[in-house]
Design a protein around this nucleic acid. Structure first.
Lengths: 327, 327
DNA sequence: CTGAAAGCGCTTACAG
DNA sequence: CTGAAAGCGCTTACAG
């Protein structure tokens, strides 16, 4: 049977409140401190979290809502959040929504019920239902990966990413370009990343670029890429994510189109695997791990009521590798 | 301000206990049922989880301890657990230990403090400290991915996996073989998988196989593979995981050794990505998602006190692809 | 079916 | 510095 604070108090010959004070860093005489400490150690006493939370009406838990678990971006971000939170004495609770928007909303309310101190939200799209939930719960929320004017958010510089890539490929002499993007519902990837790219291409007078759309799944990218390559033969395909880029490479290798000699390919993300494949993939690196750590810091500040800049933008980094040829 | 059960009771004109009974499915008259239901709906009342747990002394949370978040096996297993648990009305709590054994132990005790109903443990090695913790907490624990005589466990058939692979490569005519494994501290991968392979090879009289060891990291596998290929030139390298296999492929492509013409490569795991790379990787598929679902089912049974077979073994499946040549 | 009361294990003013 | 008491929001016998 687990000991309670009363047991400890009794055995130490003091009042419960004294033990509680000791536990919470209040002042106790050296003498009682020793007595209590001894008993606690002896019985391996640990306070009951529920009783604590019931009184204190809060916890040291940060809830994190993620759209999926099997993505490099998500897992790296989670690792960053978790590591940093540990140092800040918070626990991380993960709610996976499998890209189901209703589950996102539910998860927010669930977290509120559990009295988490703050919520980190990784979501592709913020709807009115999200905003309502966030307002309802009265708990600090930090949005990661997307920007929203009404919310504290932490994003990667998608426009910059797109621009850097666009600038580079033009510089390498590419003129017949395909950009294989994703739905504009995902503002960060679907709109901003593409915008940045477009902007760079627009500065090149004799460039043509065709825009296509696919999903985040590599398997679908393979199919879309096949359809594209059937119709045209660009010198370069820029994919909105490394995952999609790998799908394109797959299709190319299947069709015996050699990369980068016959077709250049580039992506976004900077996944570890892109360095291991052949040829290595030119990409824009996103600092997910760092983003996670920063997110943890921000949410902890928000919880404490400290101010945090409404929008934080993380720099990205162009990584030159083998998959883009100079022509 | 959140309403409490007293508020609801008062507004409905009944006693707290009646509301509680209603909430917990006890019998109430049609009349009071309606009154209570109405008020609850109106004020959007949700019971305070802490107060509930404080009394009931348990929660509907299953804790899952994972060694890392950025692994295909882990994320797939987690997804399976999460999905299944949702249907069973449990919540999943994840503790990531970053392969730090002490954190594993701590996580077990932490979960106990939080009164989780059960714990699913993904761990590479079970030490006495693990066993002590598990005994201390008096909460059902299910071990996944490793077998231990004292614990309920759910494993993949590593011996079978090794054997299937060994049998196949011998059949394909390979005689000069390298097996690139991992530390025996990880019993499942380091010992059983290798054993199964060895067993198949032993049945081949003119086969020679050299055993090497590396870590689970692709980047280290690249280095180990380079060292191996410097010394010998086997016709085939079988890697203990797909990740390691991809490291080998990387080294090969770097050294302009073509796969499978000059060197065959195979792995274990069946990661999605192995189907997308070039050449596609011959591997043994592990059913991680299903394992996760089964784990969720088992732990929920253990929590209810229902019996579950002590050891469950999941079948694996040899997947023939392009990376192994017939010679 | 319904209600009053006790209690889960803490924390928090308030006296002393 | 220390302790008695009230209370956090529930649930659970126990009467009625």
């Amino acid at each position: 049977m687990n000991k309670t604070i009363s047991d400890i108090a009794q055995m130490a010959g003091v009042a419960k409140s004294t033990v509680s004070r000791f536990l919470n860093g209040g002042s106790v005489s050296e003498d009682t401190r020793q007595k209590i400490e001894h008993i606690i150690k002896q019985y391996n006493y640990v306070p009951n979290t529920f009783a604590q939370s019931l009184k204190a009406k809060k916890t040291s838990i940060i809830g994190t809502v993620v759209p999926r678990l099997d993505s490099y971006a998500t897992s790296q971000t989670l690792i960053g959040i978790d590591e940093e939170l540990r140092g800040l004495q918070y626990q991380m609770l993960i709610a996976n929504t499998s890209q189901d928007m209703q589950r996102e909303i539910d998860a927010i309310y669930d977290f509120a019920r559990q009295k988490v101190s703050g919520i980190i939200l990784l979501a592709a799209e913020i709807t009115d239902a999200h905003l309502k939930a966030i307002e309802d719960i009265q708990i600090p929320v930090l949005l990661v990966g997307q920007q929203h004017e009404l919310l504290h958010s932490l994003i990667h510089n998608d426009e910059q990413a797109g621009y850097l890539m666009g600038e580079y490929v033009v510089e390498q002499g590419h003129r017949e370009i395909v950009y294989l993007g994703v739905s504009e519902k995902d503002q960060a990837v679907g709109i901003h990343r593409k915008q940045g790219f477009k902007q760079a291409i627009d500065e090149c007078s004799d460039c043509t670029v065709r825009y296509y759309e696919t999903s985040f799944k590599m398997s679908e990218a393979v199919i879309t890429a096949a359809e594209i390559l059937e119709k045209n033969r660009p010198s370069l395909i820029v994919a909105a994510t490394d995952n999609i880029a790998m799908g394109v490479m797959k299709t190319a290798s299947f069709q015996k189109i050699s990369i980068p000699q016959q077709l250049s390919v580039a992506g976004f993300g900077g996944y570890d695997i892109t360095e291991m494949i052949h040829p290595t993939l030119t990409t824009v690196k996103y600092h997910y791990l760092q983003a996670g750590k920063l997110a943890a810091n921000h949410i902890s500040k928000l919880v404490k009521g400290e101010s945090v800049s409404q929008h934080t933008v993380m720099d990205v980094e162009l990584i030159l590798r083998e998959s883009v040829d100079k022509i």
